[in-house]
Design a protein around this nucleic acid. Sequence first.
DNA 1: CCATTTAGGGTACGGTTCGTACCCTAAATG
DNA 2: CATTTAGGGTACGAACCGTACCCTAAATGG
Lengths: 208, 208
Amino acid sequence: MAPEQQRGGATRRRGAALEDAILRAAAEELRTAGYAGMTMDRVAQRAGTNKNAIYRRWPGRAVLGVAAYRYLADAELQVPDTGTLRGDALALLRAANKTWSSPQGAVLRDLLAAAADDPGLLTLLREQAGGSSTDAAWLTLLERAVARGEAAAGVVHPRVASVPMMLLRGEYALRGLPEVPDELLSEIVDEVFLPLVRGRTVEGGSTP
Amino acid sequence: MAPEQQRGGATRRRGAALEDAILRAAAEELRTAGYAGMTMDRVAQRAGTNKNAIYRRWPGRAVLGVAAYRYLADAELQVPDTGTLRGDALALLRAANKTWSSPQGAVLRDLLAAAADDPGLLTLLREQAGGSSTDAAWLTLLERAVARGEAAAGVVHPRVASVPMMLLRGEYALRGLPEVPDELLSEIVDEVFLPLVRGRTVEGGSTP
DNA sequence: CCATTTAGGGTACGGTTCGTACCCTAAATG
DNA sequence: CATTTAGGGTACGAACCGTACCCTAAATGG
């Protein structure tokens, strides 16, 4: 199927071209066989090269996995705008849930598990897998709510912004992989997120 | 060091005695070498037996790891009673943080990572590693606060009760293993948990 | 008290996979 | 055109999991 498999002894690739081929092959393995199936030998074979070329660029399987994941997941996260804080929050949670429950999400979770012991790898994964862009989305969501007068200024706080995603992620970690039902998302919003915003409104946790 | 290593050809253990020796050996390996170092061969050797006896009882390494973890962590979680909701919450979070940041916590996180793909194993781990007792502790904590008049009845809700631990756990998952600073714990309590309780107080999230 | 069944112990093996080493040659470099 | 650099092919060592086989100690029961 993929023409990379047997690139009949044409020319010999070098540098960036080869690196690209390796990343592409690794990403394809991730997509079809998951992280567990992303063997170094298979990646080398699919890329039409050998492990030498791989180990010359990445120190090990896990790092290559993280690098290849970027090839797979370069989706741009766009902040929804439904007009209400509740609608925005729910939309953002649904988008996250969709990603996490997809095969791609399974790969991400496997990578996260593999990097559990390695802080360096963990930050690398977080940087490349758009962890910070998610936080930013929630913050702008809160800012909009403040601008509409739906919430007090004090709610625009990173810790508050991270709560819904943390709960969703925790649900995935605690349960198996299947998928989180939609009712749970609204429960997070209605039972936790909105009361939290409300509570911070009461006597203002505003920071100067 | 450990006398289990060479139990000079005395008698041959059977049944419960042998099972106990295996679990003890596995727990010791977990403690000294972590989950990654808990090799089946090493466990067998330390227990003074062979892999046959192990595989006759547990289907694989992961399940043995979970079973052995119980040997390591049979700490009884006691609910603190400081007189205020804030004090109780902080105490409970500190206890959890202490556990999670210990070597034992590292093992637990490794096991959790290893079981990320296996829902059955995950529930097994959750049941044995006192996941539910933690939830219960937070609920009683909330009930006490209600009894003292510190909060409205509606706050006694599983989802609310799980929030602080979820956030702490998320912090561990997101960052590396080092340890979570104490300021973060009070931030979770002051910026999220207490406002959340307050917010639910406002117009009652009481469920019929 | 002896014969039979059950379960441990010793050992070896097949199968994977990671990571490394060596040698040869195509491509870049001057 | 000579030299350096980096790819390609291949084989290998090491570690581990899980399984198979055979022998024997311990339980079991007539």
